[in-house]
Amino acid sequence: MSTAPAATGTAIGMSGVTVRFTTRRSQTTALDDVSLDIEPGEFVTIVGPSGCGKSTLLKIVAGLVTPTSGEVSLLRRPVRGPQKEIGFVFQKAALLEWRGARANILLQAEMRGMDRARAARRADELIEMTGLTGFEKALPHELSGGMQQRVALCRALLHAPPVLLMDEPFGALDALTREQMNAELHRIWRETGTTVVLVTHSIAEAVFLGTRVVVMSPRPGRIIRTFPVELPAHRDYAQVMSDPRFDRLATELRGLLGSAAANH
């Protein structure tokens, strides 16, 4: 943890990251010797079985969990403590029940002490971009799951973070809404150029969104393989689904994940 891996150009750098949780009874290794470098503007998706430490990986990048050993850097600075240069989206939208959609998005600005007028303009842009227009004042319980997750996404993007971390953001949505959200996230990524790391259970989601897919093993979590996704940068959902390259990669991933689970 003493020196940062100062590879120029990396948005996120991890080398030899190991995390052990010690409980009263036992010690579990959540992540074992994970090394991963992510370039700026990449969209890296991480797939793996439940409990493989995918979420822990994101929390390490965010500085919310300190690794037992190994080095982590964000934007070429070593990660120590919670990082501010990121946007975080969870599986649950984690909205404040008492605030309307717009006020929930603006929480980001209030907590950071951002300039009010600028934040308000930016919030309105994001609301427009994600189709929340007309629901600015709606409380979370008045919104559908998809709409709630849009609000959470806007909140994570309000301060235009260079890095966006997403922990199974669409896991709780129905299939149709999920496809829509995937298409929208893809568009937002193209428009903003943000570096994105997205953890998912869905192979289709991982391949459709990612420029690179990282496959992890069951606990202790290790990186089994990394696949570059050879699909155009500008993707259309229906086209990608019928693209033979998508099929080939999805089948390969499914096989790999299946055997990884079986070997365990």
Binding site: L64, P82, F88, A94, Q108, M111, R112
Partner: peptide
């Protein structure tokens, strides 16, 4: 308080 909200708040630098 939802622990995720507290995590979120930490990454917001509050």
């Amino acid at each position: 308080t939802d622990p995720e909200l507290l995590d979120l708040s930490a990454t917001m630098g509050a």
